[in-house]
């Protein structure tokens, strides 16, 4: 069974998301309390943004994967 491009894209984006929660991506972008976003300090806002981002990524993957299965 060959992996589909859609699956590879999901794995790649999830690896990026994981790196965003740990070293090296997290410290590369956030190094202090500033800037504040919607009242939240930078690290907090960064986490919330990635949680929302992963949620949207999973929604997109789920929709596209089901669409692909139906066409098959």
């Amino acid at each position: 069974m060959r992996p589909r491009p859609l699956d590879l894209a999901l794995v790649l984006l999830l690896l990026i998301a994981t790196a965003a929660f740990v070293w090296p991506l997290y410290p590369a972008f956030i190094d202090g309390p500033e800037p504040f976003v919607l009242g939240l300090p930078a690290a907090f806002a960064w986490h919330v943004a990635w949680v929302v981002g992963v949620f949207l990524l999973l929604c997109a993957y789920h929709t596209l994967a089901r669409h692909g299965e139906e066409r098959e």
């Binding site: 410290p27 956030i30 202090g32 504040f36 300090p41 930078a42």
Partner: peptide, 22 residues
């Protein structure tokens, strides 16, 4: 007085708490 005001005060008085990774 609000979430933003709260974090601004923490950033002023205890900035080390808001520097990653904590």
């Amino acid at each position: 007085g609000g979430v933003g005001e709260m974090f601004e005060s923490i950033a002023e008085q205890r900035p080390e708490l808001l520097v990653p990774p904590g």
